[in-house]
Design a binder for these strands. Structure first.
Lengths: 349, 349
DNA sequence: AGAAATTATTTGATCGATCAAATAAAGTCA
DNA sequence: TGACTTTATTTGATCGATCAAATAATTTCT
């Protein structure tokens, strides 16, 4: 038993043919019960494991999905993608799928990598993250009819109700809408917002969540609403500066919502009155510090991605046009409420 | 051109045999220059890509390494392994290696997964992280003669100079020794240490780095040294509590070193005098907050791991006993110095 | 130049599984 | 029972590459 047993060995041991062994593994339904049991016993007894590469060569599918690992990002929020990766790997495992990583230095380089993995039959499809408007990767993948799903809606160019590719995204609007509502229900009226410059689609989406919720309640004038908003690039120091700015401009605040945990952490530092601050992404830092935060539910996103990738479409839109299966999934984030538990601010004063 | 071209197509186009095409790719040296060029031209022209699974089936090697992705850890320091994964993927890519992820719910389950991937010829070897004393995984891998390298030295059982398996680790002692020295050189005398209970080997290692450096300098009495140390489990709140404790017990401090960034972040919160605090792991949080921290140099670790895995040993010790190649690598971490830049503490007072 | 040694290239077999088509066995109905 | 379906199982070919051994081309040496 120098090497692993093969189907032939199992077939011999069970007194059946190779194909029957194969059938027991792939379409157990068509094998008579007693035969199946005999084969299964032989498999167990010999410790047989199918040779993945051999199977792939023949079936032309790898049961593997590729995902790019972003280069190290110095920033708290990078961990969202890491958590997504965790979730994806776990969920994929349950479906017998493997996750293969790769790196790329630019979108163009990434396309080369996509091609390599696809041509080498290494993967059945891809999961794309960090998509952006006019993303060349999605265009290329569609043109080459390669199965893929994006984590992130197709910003800009696309009509949400008839997307050109499959996607899953988190509803940032809903997240901030809910966070705003929660603050309002807790009695807050003057709720500030620290967001990103409107070049980022994601940022606009979140901002509208807050803005709409404030409008709906209507207990703040339009002029005040403008004062309650500060725009800055992401970062802890930027958050601190923005918070100081906000307090100066808007006067007393009942609560502050931020577009990211980085900003929220920064804001909290310039927050002697302990105004409740809510971040976004529910990063480990938020948990550690005791910040409320909007959680992207990466688990649900991962499940949705795999759903679309393995589901009816097989990761592609073209070729299954009549289906009623949804072509995208908008995941509702959930608000995690915390109360600065970890921060005994008294020691600071 | 419905499907991808194969070696045969290339051979036909270049007017040579299959094997010559194969040689051009795998042992270019034995092919005459002009023939090689002709084949390379054909490859480029047809856009030929070798079929990975077919190659694997024949060669019985996959050019893929497996690594387990830990279940989501709620903690700041989890990101070290994520960063290691980034680095590993990048380095592996340079050597034409792929990284395949898997998950497991327990060490026992992990062994099952290891077996599956190995038997299916999915991977050539493994990288193990988070090893611990008496780890059943390493035992099993050695017994089954499967190539692997651990990130983490074999704690306890093993003799470092003659290890039973290949490993790479970061010298926590050196990290804290250097951090202590740096503080001393900056004029600090009373340098506190917030560490973990001594059940954790890693923690003891770091603690000794501080302790030894303090001893060497000798400007603090042994009695004082005891007062300068606080032990607690990991966590931000715990760090805050430990810092308060430390200030109470040890009186005035010149600097504080911590066994983790979580503790350091916590400590910083109970630090109105702005005593320099140094953490460990150089997590994004440390960067964001402006904490000094000991960086584990995951890039070097990744390079070392791949070195051992693909090097002379081929990931195994048995079978290459005479080699002078080192069987392990101890990576020196590097101290990243920051100055609370992101934290304008004035706003707190 | 011609034999021997070296280098370059080709041929047939093979890795381990599944597909497609053929055969055997079991079940159905007049 | 015998012809006719339906279900179960087997056989031969194949996926795309590389290995091992055979052949062809080239170089070396006397």
């Amino acid at each position: 038993m120098a090497s692993m047993p093969t189907v032939t060995d199992v077939a011999l041991a069970a007194g059946v043919s190779r194909q029957t062994v194969s059938n027991v593994m792939n379409s157990p339904g068509i094998v008579r019960a007693d035969t199946r049991e005999r084969v299964e016993a032989a498999i167990a007894q010999l410790g047989y494991r199918p040779h993945a590469s051999a199977r792939r060569l023949r079936t032309r599918r790898s049961s593997t999905i590729g995902i790019r690992l972003d280069p190290m990002i110095d920033g708290i929020s990078g961990s969202v993608l890491d958590r997504f990766l965790h979730a994806l790997t776990e969920q994929a495992d349950k479906q017998g799928l493997r996750v293969l990583l790769f790196t790329a230095t630019s979108p163009e380089d990434e396309i080369i990598q996509l091609q390599r993995l696809n041509d080498g039959a290494d993967v059945d499809g891809f999961v794309l993250t960090s998509t952006f408007a006019g993303d060349p990767r999605t265009k290329w993948l569609i043109e080459n009819k390669i199965a893929f799903v994006t984590f992130g809606r197709p910003w800009g160019t696309d009509d949400v109700s008839d997307p050109q590719h499959l996607w899953v995204d988190v509803d940032g609007w809903a997240g901030l809408h809910e966070a705003t509502r929660a603050a309002q229900n807790a009695g807050a009226r003057r709720i500030g917002y620290i967001g990103w410059p409107s070049s980022a689609d994601t940022g606009d989406d979140r901002r509208r969540g807050w803005h709409d919720a404030m409008h709906e309640r209507g207990d703040v004038t339009e002029a005040d609403l403008t004062k309650l908003e500060v725009v800055t690039v992401d970062g802890v120091a930027e958050g601190t500066a923005a918070m100081q700015d906000l307090r100066r401009r808007a006067g007393p605040l009942d609560a502050v919502l931020c577009a990211s945990d980085s900003l929220a952490l920064g804001a909290m530092i310039a927050n002697p009155e302990r105004v409740p601050v809510t971040g976004y992404d529910n990063t480990p830092v938020a948990a550690a510090i005791g910040l409320s935060s909007v959680d992207q539910s990466v688990g649900e996103v991962a499940a949705g991605v795999l759903d679309l990738l393995t589901g009816e479409f097989g990761g592609q839109i073209h070729g299954a046009p009549e289906s009623l299966q949804p072509r995208y999934q908008m995941i509702r984030p959930r608000l995690v409420t915390r109360a600065f538990a970890a921060i005994p601010m008294e020691v600071l004063a």
